[in-house]
Amino acid sequence: MDSSFLLSITTFAYLLCTLLYLSGVVFLYQPLLISGSVVGALTLVVQTAGLLLRWRESYQLGYGHAPLSNLYESLVFAAWAIILIYLILELRTRQRVLGVFPALFAFLAMAYASFSTQVDSKIQPLVPALKSNWLIAHVVTCFLGYAAFAISCGISILYLLRKAQGGNPHPRGILGLLPEARQLDQFNYQMIVFGFLWLSLGIITGSIWANSAWGTYWSWDPKETWSLITWLVYAALLHSRTMQGWRGSRVAWLSVIGFSCVLFTYFGVNFLLSGLHSYATK
């Protein structure tokens, strides 16, 4: 058994997990939601094993590095972090309905990693620039932040759906199991704060790493700049929530915007800006 087998099981298991959560919400049936959580937790265990195995395999190949070094590995780790953080949130809040989006995001990340032709799943050796202990610290912190923002985005979408139903405190239909708007807002805020702390740590570790590799802690490269943009959007959100009492829909919209900045920092900079950037280096 090798890591790629475990990770392909993971991909399909997250699809199953998403379908269970979704059908639980659609049919208003708690046991489906519970089995969603169980499948999610079991998959997390399989995925953890897959990641650890991949780590070991890289040593067997003579490269020896943590599985956090390229797009494929980062996508797998992103899925892992989303489910881990979500399950902790679920354990604390007992709100299983929130699982639909995190499970979907985790599945999409795994599916993209496994099936896209753009993503190379082979274990590759580390180029000299990545050979540093900061690699683990930087990638882990950033992706914990991204994962929290993904969950917050999911909660925000649920919040906005709920608000679209009007002020009815007990909406019927597929939103019937959703917690109160005020609770959703609170969970959203918790996830944003958590993500903000980790994103700050991620930017800071990246900056210290850049300083030890290239001698500049900040060079306004597109990736850095976009992570700062993301940070500014969430900082604006936190300030307006605390000082101007913004709650609910406005925070939810800002959170969705913030998460799209995360996605752009993650994918957009690689695929769109690199094209624009390449001629300058020719």
Binding site: T225, L228, L232, A236, H239, Q244, L276
Partner: peptide, 20 residues
Amino acid sequence: TVLLFLTLAVCSIMGTLLPQ
């Protein structure tokens, strides 16, 4: 403050669209 955050964000975006 919030306006400055968002202005800085938008201006920074412009900087990433053109090679510096």
